[in-house]
């Protein structure tokens, strides 16, 4: 069964926010929304689940910090202990700075890579976009026509109410 999609293009933030809210209320299936900039709160309006990136950040940051404390202790106090300036073998206050730096490094890099991975972003990827202008000044809402009850004319009327500039239907593969 081939998938059919309905795409509405909008020009203003208020319109895209309004239309997303409306189609959500009417329980249409939002495939995706394309925007030129981050519209705050739109992901909640569209009903997308919150990202789990904070967990990656927390876990890897904690791991980095613990690893570094152990590593500094092991190298400085155990593997080859050297007396430097009469400081104790286990100079915990002196380990804090690098532990912090390594924690930030682990947490930061791992979160960025997790972001690339979960968003499937990589060099050489061909961007799949409904309209070339979504990175410039257009907002596009993509709905899936789940079954025969999907009333294209009705949805078009909703789109019209939010000042749509273009409505089109596409078969599978035509969009992202």
């Amino acid at each position: 069964m081939s998938q059919r999609y309905l795409l509405g293009t909008f020009e203003r933030e208020e319109d895209i926010v309004g239309v997303v809210k409306k189609v959500r209320e009417l329980n249409y299936k939002i495939v995706d929304v394309y925007t030129p900039y981050a519209v705050h709160g739109l992901e909640r309006t569209a009903g997308f689940a919150p990202s789990r990136l904070p967990w990656v950040c927390f876990a890897l940051g904690l791991f980095g910090a613990l690893f570094k404390v152990w590593f500094e202790f092991w190298t400085t106090a155990s593997d080859w202990a050297i007396n430097v300036g009469g400081k104790p073998w286990n100079s915990l206050p002196a380990y804090v700075p690098i532990t912090f730096e390594v924690m930030v490094l682990f947490a930061g890099l791992s979160t960025v890579f997790a972001f690339f991975w979960s968003s499937r972003l990589f060099p050489g990827k061909k961007p799949i976009m409904p309209d070339i202008r979504v990175t410039n000044d257009r907002f596009v809402l993509v709905l899936e026509q789940e079954d025969s009850t999907f009333d294209v004319a009705k949805v078009q009327r909703i789109f019209k109410r939010f000042n749509t500039v273009k409505v089109e239907e596409r078969q599978e593969g035509g969009q992202g």
Binding site: D32, V33, Y34, T35, L53, S119, K125
Partner: peptide
């Protein structure tokens, strides 16, 4: 990297 302005990506992007 094939950025396409998808709200799903923006969602993660803002958290990142």
């Amino acid at each position: 990297l094939g950025w396409n302005g998808s709200l799903r990506t923006w969602n993660r992007y803002e958290v990142l």
